[in-house]
Write a protein that binds this DNA or RNA. Sequence first.
DNA 1: GCGTAGTCTGAAATCGTTTTCTTGCAGGTA
DNA 2: TACCTGCAAGAAAACGATTTCAGACTACGC
Lengths: 337, 337
Amino acid sequence: MAREKVGIRDVAKLAGVSPATVSRVLNRPELVAERLRDQVHRAMARLGYAPNALARGLRTRHTGVLGLIVPDIAHPFFAEVVRGVEDVASREGYRVFLCNTDENPDKEEKYVAELLNHRVEGIIFISSSNSRAQLTSSSDVPVVVVDRRVSLDDLHEVLCDDVLGGRLATEHLLSLEHRHLAFLGGPQVIPNNADRLRGCREALAQAQLALDQALVAEVLVRVEAGERATEQLLDTGRYFSALFAANDLLAIGAVRALRARGLEVPGDVSVVGYDDVWFAAHLSPPLTTVAQPKRELGERAMQRLLALVRGQAPPERLVRMLPALVVRQSTAPPRHK
Amino acid sequence: MAREKVGIRDVAKLAGVSPATVSRVLNRPELVAERLRDQVHRAMARLGYAPNALARGLRTRHTGVLGLIVPDIAHPFFAEVVRGVEDVASREGYRVFLCNTDENPDKEEKYVAELLNHRVEGIIFISSSNSRAQLTSSSDVPVVVVDRRVSLDDLHEVLCDDVLGGRLATEHLLSLEHRHLAFLGGPQVIPNNADRLRGCREALAQAQLALDQALVAEVLVRVEAGERATEQLLDTGRYFSALFAANDLLAIGAVRALRARGLEVPGDVSVVGYDDVWFAAHLSPPLTTVAQPKRELGERAMQRLLALVRGQAPPERLVRMLPALVVRQSTAPPRHK
DNA sequence: GCGTAGTCTGAAATCGTTTTCTTGCAGGTA
DNA sequence: TACCTGCAAGAAAACGATTTCAGACTACGC
């Protein structure tokens, strides 16, 4: 039976060969005669040998470990992305370190340093709003940025087109004959949020319309904040028949606030969200929203990272994915013209 | 500026000292004279030295790395637990490997082996239903099991009392004067689910009541499955004024199914869920449910694991946490006696 | 019988640290 | 002056693998 610390040399001794041979059996079995190979295998089994990834990594500088930096794994959007990331990593024989930053640049910095100490071969990075991401680009491990754009042109990025997403949502509303929209979005310092607003504006402009600036709200991405902001929107007294909440969490808050004021969704106000987190379909009313390919975002990012690690990086640094409108029941034509 | 592979010896050379001294500066600074200490620090800064955790781990067998095995990080319950785990790990200077098993024992096995190869110092384990968890107990790294009980008495466990949870939910319903309950739970092979049912039965028995066996459903934990099962419950024609869905996801499905049949919640049927995943409060109606201290579950588990790693394990192997009923608006007294 | 090519295998250096064991040296005492 | 103490710093041996290089052996052809 296995008892602690069996090394390659123990195996070697038992099999009556040199450590070098054992190593070869592990890595280039075709180089060693079949008879010896069997002996070695038997010895490994008998001793319960487990290769030491640390030693191997030290020697070969191939650690089989990657880093994953994410604002908050408990957020349903990120959770899904992470799942995609981990899936392909493990399928390809890599392990990943999970790091939650809570959008805190200091934590990001510390984590990056720590990951580098552990000699990760690459890093997947979902940057926080005010990230000092240059840190990562200075080191010489490959980095792939996902979801959150970072203005650093030596990084590879896997992004979803938020401008398009904003357009899709808005065009949907327009096609239902809505003419008076309100916009509720997350912090505009995060480019994604700004892009969604821009997409919204573009679509409106194309229809010769414009957003009433008083009906544009910017808040933290939390249900309560969405609720609060929606109340304020209503309090302006300005009329709107539809609300584009550029995040499902905000949309939930918005729906609650509207209901609390006795307004029906979509009867009085249509609401469209953004992200299509998994339970958006299970809200009441089921939420019309712009779906991002969350898991695929993660998968693609990891594929790209592995390509980079293996030196097969495609020259094109940007993978742009497309959002898709999912029409459910929180949107309908406005009640009266 | 930093350029690849600076090691302790490069620093030593630049600082005009021996590698040993540099190492001491890193680990036991008090042992080296202040003047040298400064020189070394300066040299490290100049070279952009980053310690190699692999080498250190190899030498000291203290890797600062832990493993976290979980069925699915994208599940809102686990995501929250994981957050707790990672938080205290990182606060204590440890990194964690994230592993998703999809409840697949083969994957569990592979992951455990892989983690051991990487010389993790401990493992947090949320076992899958039919796990062959003995694997982990055979190795000599500490293991802490969370949430899912495992019948292996050399493992430490951090669990939530599901029997009590079942009682709480049921007693709440009873206190509202419900007398006819239906039960909708996850696979009974998972002890947690069985316990919740048991708690339910116990509470009923105490009130001289019993569950109608025809109104006990067991399904996979998915919204759709809950929906389907609820329809079947209704199709039995048996009367029930309240439904205990021993999982929030099932509860969501149940509510949908009830509504689809024209039944009001809680007007016609009260529904109580289990877990209190974060959006349970944002459903309509806001879901009455049994809350588990999810994040704390993870935190306690990690604290225990670290204690184990540091050899300060308390003798008591079991940490039992308490669920709490959260009354919201999906439950009410039955309409007519 | 000898040179040569071709297979396998082993010896030993190496990866970057930590740590034990020594040694050098300063200072205090007899 | 000689001796002991004690401290600070260095030399060198690990940790457990991989890999280069060279050696042993076989087989073959002339």
